[in-house]
């Protein structure tokens, strides 16, 4: 079983197994957004709840919201994206955006596995 799950909003959520997760956007999402130029990070300690906007990802053309796929608290942000947001274009799965401490690990059960996500993007 992979420890990576997916949301319908094209995010990936990696379960670290210690009550924390890393959240990034999928390759499909980066492809749709195009060249990224800025990622606006939430403040550390921000409480997030499912479906809420937590960050804004800006490409050359437009700004897009990142929606929280789980409930929890932001405990770390990927600071290397401040200077190099294009890292996400280069490898979306290897470059997480925020680290979140889960309020309830059962939230992960509501997310999709890789097969289900791939099916969604092929539609």
């Amino acid at each position: 079983m992979s420890n990576i799950k997916y949301s319908a909003e094209h995010e990936w959520v990696q379960d670290n197994g210690d009550g924390t997760v890393l959240i990034g956007i999928t390759d499909f999402a980066q492809e749709q957004l195009g060249d990224l130029v800025f990622v606006e990070m939430p403040e550390l300690g921000t409480e997030i709840s499912k479906g809420e906007e937590i960050s804004v990802i800006e490409s050359v053309k437009a700004a897009s919201d990142l929606f929280a796929p789980v409930d929890g608290t932001v405990i770390e942000v990927n600071e290397s994206l401040d200077d190099e947001p294009e890292l996400i274009n280069e490898d979306a799965m290897a470059n997480w955006i925020i680290k979140v401490e889960l309020s309830d690990s059962k939230d992960l059960d509501d997310l999709m596995n890789e097969d289900a996500y791939n099916q969604l993007t092929e539609e």
């Binding site: 195009g34 060249d35 490409s59 050359v60 294009e86 274009n89």
Partner: peptide, 12 residues
Amino acid sequence: PVQYPLGIKKEH
């Protein structure tokens, strides 16, 4: 066409 596979940055 809004962009080609090269992408907006490289096209620019």
